[in-house]
Design a protein around this nucleic acid. Sequence first.
RNA 1: CUACAAACCCGAGCUAUCGCUCCGUGUAAGCGGGGAGGAAAGUCCGGACAGUAUAGAGCAACCCACCGGUUAAGCGCCGGCUCUUGGCUAAGCCAAGACGAGAAAGUGCCACAGAAAAUAACUACUUCCGAUGCAAAUCGGGAGAAAAGGUGAAAAUGUGAGGUAAAAGCUCACGGUCCCGGAAGGUAACUUUCGGGAUGGGUAAACCUUGGGUACUGUAAUGCCAUGUAUAGGACUGUUUGAGGGCGGCUCGUUCGAGGUCCAGGGUAGGCAGCAAGAUCACGUCAGUAAUGGCGGGGCCAGAUAAAUGAUAGUUUAGAAACAGAAUCCGGCUUAUGAGGUUUGUAGUUUU
RNA 2: CGGGACGUAGCGCAGCCCGGUAGCGCACACGUCUGGGGGGCGUGGGGUCGCAAGUUCAAAUCUUGUCGUCCCGA
Length: 130
Amino acid sequence: MPATYSYNKKEKLKSRKLLDQLFTKGKSVSAFPLKVFYGVLPAETTETVQAGVGVSARNFSKAVDRNRIKRLLREAYRLNKTALHDALHAQQKKAAVFILYVGKEKPEFATLNEMMPLVLQKLIAAIAKS
RNA sequence: CUACAAACCCGAGCUAUCGCUCCGUGUAAGCGGGGAGGAAAGUCCGGACAGUAUAGAGCAACCCACCGGUUAAGCGCCGGCUCUUGGCUAAGCCAAGACGAGAAAGUGCCACAGAAAAUAACUACUUCCGAUGCAAAUCGGGAGAAAAGGUGAAAAUGUGAGGUAAAAGCUCACGGUCCCGGAAGGUAACUUUCGGGAUGGGUAAACCUUGGGUACUGUAAUGCCAUGUAUAGGACUGUUUGAGGGCGGCUCGUUCGAGGUCCAGGGUAGGCAGCAAGAUCACGUCAGUAAUGGCGGGGCCAGAUAAAUGAUAGUUUAGAAACAGAAUCCGGCUUAUGAGGUUUGUAGUUUU
RNA sequence: CGGGACGUAGCGCAGCCCGGUAGCGCACACGUCUGGGGGGCGUGGGGUCGCAAGUUCAAAUCUUGUCGUCCCGA
């Protein structure tokens, strides 16, 4: 098991190929203002979950705002990811996840920290069905 | 003292917990250290670096445009010159700006108004001829003439005198502007001055002319390693009757030359170098009016590849709230910017 | 990282090259035709020409800077 609240390089979704697959073929669940794309990781991956975060440049034209939102998303994911990890571990599954912020207002950390567990619960439910 | 405007400076600090990225060390856990900006932005100039090219001629295209300095370079910066505008008040000084070669090579344009907007004759003026008339004068035709005239952004070099039928730089004097030649000062632009000549409206951010200059492409460049597919299908075209490519865009010319173009489909989309010690940073000192440069000892100061600086709590300050996030790197320019500070200017109030 | 185009009335566009009057369609207001609506016809209002500076007698138009929007290539 990795450290409880870590979010380092290995846990990030980095492969351009996987990202393309995720957006073209992957499924998604959403809980406004968050939207999560998910898919299955190749079997040889060592990590249980690889996750990425993103914001649309269309909604936030300034790089400072996008960086800020991505930092908040990473922070929220880092603090709430334990449930997802445990669930996947129990089901012997490995998932690729991409969390997208689709709102148009700059968020507060507190609201993101509330929404993140909700959307992750939805995600766990959706993965359990498939 | 208050308010406003402009320029410049500055662009929060500390503690705890949980995290991110790079480097060092370590088998590992961990430990230690570095970690966004003055604009990192716009991409407007200039370079470094890299690849390709580096026979030639003509044409085209683009850029620059007072002088000197500075620099790796520049359409930057510094200093000066000239002009324009404003102020003080005046033969000067101060401030700001200049896309600051040429309108005396040519072409074009100058609305409205006005006779006329660039080979000026409409009115008025002078004169000659003819007609009418006793005459004054009127009418018609020709010539002279830019001195007077409303207009307009702009009207043919200004004032005075002579001159004439009436006039006119037609002539003269003093000026304005321009050209040529000389002298003095200045590195130069240029300034002052002497002599001679000319008198030509504006516009080149209209075409253009003159002088000078310009290889192209950009770090997703480029070099290397690895993985993988179809030694792979169709159509058209070509192999000395030369397809296609290189030589800056075109033409000529020259050279390489056996493949080239399109359609459909398949695969890869890891990694390493480039990549961060440099036209470097701050300090001191010297040279220079300054920009800037020399010297001295000292420091090492982001380096990712979905892309690192954050979250929470406390605290200091007056309430952490501005503009804003490196992506090859530098030098400039431009634009954005809260609070506070400094300086300058404007306005108002109070006191003397 | 590099390249290009566009900002004109509420909306969509012309005018810009080659400077002097800002125009077209829809929409809007009023009138009229109709018993009324729709529709037709007529009249009218409405524009800091994105912003700033400059050139010029004069700028939507030319030049420079700047802001915004959109597109393209790798």
